[in-house]
Design a protein around this nucleic acid. Structure first.
Lengths: 140, 140
DNA sequence: TCCTAGATTGGAATTATTCTTGATATCGGT
DNA sequence: ACCGATATCAAGAATAATTCCAATCTAGGA
């Protein structure tokens, strides 16, 4: 068998060049895909320990960094809080609900262009966008 | 004399209810208005020490927090870097030039509405928006 | 199977920020 | 101008998230 991981796969991408898929990385990734809330490294560590009780927090940080570097997950920061990790790798923003603390992904409407609503400096080439909204959801 | 600060004023707002304008706060504010780059607390500390050599970093943090709470300045965070402080209190975003490290304010085009380009959750009431772009300025 | 690069671990180190405490300064009322 | 209540300041200790480090460990190729 040539693949690093077998059958169930845990939602792993078929291939990711240059990335050795170790059990730790696999489990960190699986945990992130399983619950798509936006856990901190600590929360990831707690969840991963259920299956890999001996994994260290440093390793979780390492795995998260590696997965981020390979574009499999995203790291998101709100204010100066702990970094959170996001399994949605599409371009999107976040809505932080002040009441519940929950974080919701916000998609861009199709076809929108940044330059339509922002006064960009002339010649600016945008490589990364980060949009965070804070507010409340009206009681439905 | 009834006002806390006299003539030159240092760009201070005429009045800010509930805010005691101490020399430290005044100088921190003056420094921020003077150079509208986006200094960290440490950089503010260095600059302020030129006039108030005995001011402590803790006091600078206190002053910055107070000024932020009173809406006279804004605190901005990029990734997990040290917080930066921004004397532009209008609603705006930031462009982080990867090459120079410089941070440019980005204004919204007039009349744009968030809901025009973002898929907001129904009933969401937005209280704060944070937009950060990263990229480069094309060599002009 | 052996070798080597890369991965993991636990703990120490780092760094920005906050907290604590005592001293000082300021305000409003008299 | 004086007083008590309150707010601010300063210095250093404390905190918390993250990174670094040195010592194993592991997987995969020769």
């Amino acid at each position: 068998m040539s693949r690093l991981h077998d059958k169930a796969n845990g939602g792993l991408p078929e291939a990711c060049p240059g990335l050795r898929m170790t059990p730790q990385r696999q489990e960190v990734y699986r945990v992130l895909m399983g619950r798509r809330d936006h856990p901190t490294a600590n929360e990831v560590h707690s969840r991963v320990k259920k299956r890999l009780p001996n994994i260290s927090l440093a390793t979780v940080y390492n795995c998260l960094e590696t997965l981020v570097d390979h574009g499999l997950i995203r790291q998101v920061n709100f204010e100066r809080e702990s970094s959170r990790y996001c399994s949605n790798v599409n371009e999107h923003g976040h809505f932080h609900d002040a009441a519940s603390g929950a974080i919701h992904d916000i998609d861009f409407k199709p076809g929108v262009n940044l330059a339509d609503f922002l006064d960009l400096p002339p010649g600016a080439v945008i490589e990364d966008i980060e949009i965070t909204l804070r507010g409340k959801l009206a009681a439905s």
